[in-house]
Amino acid sequence: MKAAPFVRLALWTLVAAFVLWPDLFAPLLRPLAPDGMPVIYDRARLADLTLWHLGLVVAAIIPSALLATALAILVTRPSGAEFLPLARALGGFGQTFPPVAVLALAVPVVGFGAWPTLIALFLYGLLPVLENALAGLSGVPRAVMLAADGMGMTPRQRLWRVELPLAAPLMVEGVRISTVIAISTAAIGSTVAAPGLGEVIIAGLNANNLAFVVQGGLLTAALALIVHDALGLAAHALKAHRRVTVAG
């Protein structure tokens, strides 16, 4: 584990260098490009595409995670308990929907561009967060809930001071899963003309230019790995001081 910070730093540096000065890496990719074809994607700057890609993901995941958390809180309150079986069933059932299908079905509704991608990312992002938040909130030990009530916490105090902090690591884990899926789906979003790193891969596939495919693929992969790693650190920090008390 001691190597982790160095690997992390190296990955960040490499990605930053590639995004900012891709031409430095052109000699490495040259053998993959057909003769006479550009080696580095030239229809947009890689830095812009990376930002677009991340921006789409963030713009979709933040409201998605907030809504999913709110829903999970709602159905774990006594007044919403009625919807708990439905929420659980939907959370499980919804995840059998392939992200590609969600993306493709959004196109007829809102047309091409960033919107169908945003909608697909938003909808698909709900489920892992919902499922994990439900697991986290309903996994708070009975004795702890009883103690909170017995100490005289109001339902709101119990939620904010006990339930949410205890469920937080699992919730962040849910956000992590959602975000990684979103990065992947956003790449596919380029098939419906969403700006992002996917368009580099698509352009490469269409033009049979493997140099494009590889640079787009590597950058997307690096983006996913970096975000996955960062959110993993966040989840770890949240539970650093205690044993995980909630069952998954």
Binding site: A148, D149, M151, G152, T154, V162, R242, R243
Partner: peptide
Amino acid sequence: AAPELRRKIGYVIQDHGLFPH
């Protein structure tokens, strides 16, 4: 009000129910 009442009454349970965080 129940919360107000309970704050005035001490309560100890078997699995101690300490807040793990």
